[in-house]
Write a protein that binds this DNA or RNA. Structure first.
Length: 652
RNA sequence: GCGCCCAUAGCUCAAUGGAUAGAGCAUUCGGCUACGAACCGAAAGGUUAGAGGUUCGACUCCUCUUGGGCGCGCCA
């Protein structure tokens, strides 16, 4: 609602600038006045036009106000301060439209968007860093869908890489286990991902003890890449079980995927051969005969200057894609995969069903030979890769390859959704019993490390949160049945966790501490859930429903222009801004704005809840209006929470 | 050496170049007879790391300095 009026206002002003001054202004900045008493929108454009028009800002603002005429939905325009134009909307009209849940018509025919997130190495349990990735990615997917976009969610599986190879080394060389032994271990149903977590740390230690053991690692890696042997089968057993466990862990947070492309199929379906041909033909890749990179196929390093500066090392401006032994680097394989994403490769995966969600949706996996009927993935117009900030160089390199192939449009639609890591505070690490180096004790945070087995496992954290929430629920709602208490505790735990992961902006490192993450008070998910629950309680106790409250005929204008109308209007206006916030989150690839918005809306509602005892309201007409206020805020708050993957419990 | 990110209240974090830099936590004070206090109100807390510059206007953009983080392989 707010977004629609903002666009209408900007369009009108743009037209006015054209007819009145002959100025083409591509974008008109629309702000908000410091408080609603001054209006709903503020236009500072008179300031920027002052020099161009050789007139004082106030004069320009006055001329624009005089010329703007009638704009549907708007009540009046006035000049304020040194030259702001403030716009006031028809409060009653906006409130009535919001109560009726009227939406602007969605734009149609927009390309499908592909979001890749999670992409955990399938060799050990997921940890808190992976949770940040998945929550950011899933929330971004929900934001896109809330904006009417069609989205495919992919979770890339590096099932033939060194990390899986390391665990295979662990089973084959340290544990002396056969393929059947590993299969039996998996069949026990015990936490195989936790077993691998510990084994992976042991293997890393084992390598460190004797450098010559790296040879074992390389042999195993090559056996896995080649396929058709016991080591490759062990790798497949490991990665397949752990993939399922990762899906299950994420499902606990309401995170699902459509497709799991695996590196094994990228290798065996020869995606690289197709990509190599394209890259050679277009000259993006060239064969280096001299220097450090002699014998390799290389491309220009992303960000390197067009010309090599005299005296600099030319090899520094090159990125090796095919090694002199004819094997392909990680970036090379990633280029092939991304050409497929954009439908530029001329090859496709085969597809198999892999994992069924409770709602009947399937998560598909890549295969060499697959099922006859399957959905189509890939060939999209825009992609978002949720990958941590440390990988921005290879990401830029892949984007650069696509750009140099001449496809600037796809290169522009290649988005590296970059975010910072989750680390542990030294105190948290100490509490967990890890040995900490003295120099680390004074640091703000310590990076988690799979190689050292150092970190907080995702499922452990979720369990701890549920346990903590359950204590609160049982003490507050002792009369409820245990399963219901448990269900509510889970909703609260998820709310706390997802909000915690979203409240920080992407490029701030989260220094994890159980004290902060386990908090259910203040700026947290449960606070916002609680506000929505209390709004719901009003209807239950009042023996009515939110729907009924919104169906009433109400003179909104009367109440919103009353002496205390500004405070109430502020709440309505905040509720009207959801779609504006969605748009902002997408444009800036920053889901943290939604977290902030939901919290602030909840806060304003809590304030309203205390000031107005709705069910005791003597005036029946005013009571109807206050009920409608609660209903609208509850609805928009629940939507905002849903976009973050947070549900509103029945009671709290 | 090169590149990217960061520095805001005691702590953790916000703030599309716009009007008086905001929250939470912690501290102090006050509010439960249930539309359940997982809440609300109030107080206190700021030279936005430092120095220049651009602008009608800078936490925000540019340059430099200081301090921190991350990346820069014929690893993945």
């Amino acid at each position: 609602m707010y977004r629609m009026l903002q666009r209408r206002l900007a369009d009108r002003v743009r037209g006015l600038l054209r007819t009145q001054y002959g100025i083409e202004q591509a974008s008109v900045v629309v702000d908000q006045p410091p408080n609603v008493a001054l209006g709903e929108y503020a236009l500072p454009l008179a300031f920027e036009l002052a020099k161009q028009l050789r007139k004082p800002p106030r004069k320009i603002a006055e001329e624009l106000v005089a010329g703007i005429g009638v704009v549907p939905g708007f009540h009046s325009f006035e000049v304020a301060g040194a030259g702001y134009i403030n716009a006031r909307v028809n409060r009653g009209e906006v409130a009535a439209a919001l109560a009726a849940d009227k939406h602007e018509t969605a734009e149609l025919n927009r390309d499908k968007i592909l979001v890749e997130h999670t992409s955990i190495n399938p060799n050990k349990a997921a940890h808190i860093g992976h949770l940040r990735n998945a929550v950011l990615g899933d929330t971004f997917v929900r934001l896109l869908r809330a904006d009417g976009r069609q989205v495919d969610v992919q979770n890339y599986i590096d099932n033939t890489g060194v990390q899986v190879a390391d665990v295979v080394v662990g089973f084959a060389h340290l544990e002396k286990k056969s393929k059947d032994d590993v299969a039996k271990l998996i069949a026990t149903g015990l936490r195989f991902d936790y077993t691998c977590w510990d084994l992976y740390a042991r293997v890393s230690q084992w390598y460190a003890e004797d450098k010559s053991r790296d040879k074992v690692r390389l042999e195993v890696l090559h056996a896995i890449e080649k396929g058709g042997n016991d080591l490759a089968e062990i790798a497949d057993l490991i990665s397949t079980d752990i993939m399922r466990r990762h899906l299950h862990t994420m499902q606990r947070l309401d995170i699902t995927y459509d497709f799991l492309p695996r590196e094994s199929e990228i290798l065996r379906l020869h995606f690289w051969d197709a990509a190599f041909a394209l890259l050679k033909e277009s000259g993006v890749l060239y064969f280096e005969k001299e220097g450090k990179n002699a014998g390799c196929w290389v491309m220009r390093r992303a960000g390197a200057g067009e010309k090599t500066v005299e005296g600099t090392d030319e090899a520094e401006d090159q990125k090796v894609i095919v090694r002199s032994n004819n094997t392909v680097t990680y970036v090379g394989k990633d280029i092939a995969y991304h050409l497929w994403k954009f439908g530029l490769l001329g090859k496709d995966f085969a597809y198999r069903r892999f994992y069924e969600y409770p709602d009947g949706q399937w998560c598909w996996v890549s295969a060499e030979t697959g099922e006859r009927d399957h959905p189509h993935f890939g060939g999209v117009g825009a992609i978002y890769n949720v990958i941590d900030a440390r990988q921005s160089d290879p990401q830029n390199q892949v984007r650069e390859a696509i750009r140099e192939l001449g496809d600037t449009e796809h290169a522009e639609n290649y988005h590296h959704f970059s975010y910072e890591m989750v680390a542990l505070t030294p105190r948290c690490a100490a509490e967990m019993g890890y040995d900490i180096l003295p120099e680390d004790m004074t640091k703000a945070y310590i990076e988690v490390s799979g190689r050292r087995g150092f970190g907080v496992k995702a499922d452990d954290l979720i369990d701890t949160l549920i346990h903590s929430a359950a204590e609160e629920v049982t003490s507050r709602h002792a009369q409820l049945e245990a399963p219901e208490q448990r269900a509510i505790a889970e909703q609260i735990a998820i709310g706390a966790l997802r909000y915690f992961m979203l409240r920080y902006t992407k490029n701030s490192v989260i220094a994890f501490d159980f004290k902060d993450a386990l908090s259910f008070e203040g700026e947290t998910g449960p606070y916002a859930q609680y506000a929505a629950v209390r709004a719901g309680n009003i209807f239950r106790k009042g023996d009515t429903t939110a729907e009924a409250a919104l169906a009433e005929r109400i003179n909104f204008e009367q109440w919103l222009s009353a002496p205390d109308g500004n405070d109430l209007w502020e709440l309505w206006l905040a509720a009207a801004k959801l779609s504006t916030v969605v748009e902002q989150c997408i444009a800036t690839t920053e889901p943290a704005h939604m977290a902030k918005y939901a919290f602030q809306l909840a806060q304003q509602f809590s304030n309203f809840y205390h000031r107005h005892h709705i069910l005791n309201e003597a005036d029946p007409e005013r009571k109807k209006f206050l009920l409608a206020t609660a209903a609208v805020v509850r609805r928009e708050l629940a939507r905002a929470l849903d976009i973050m993957g947070i549900q509103v419990p029945p009671v709290m």
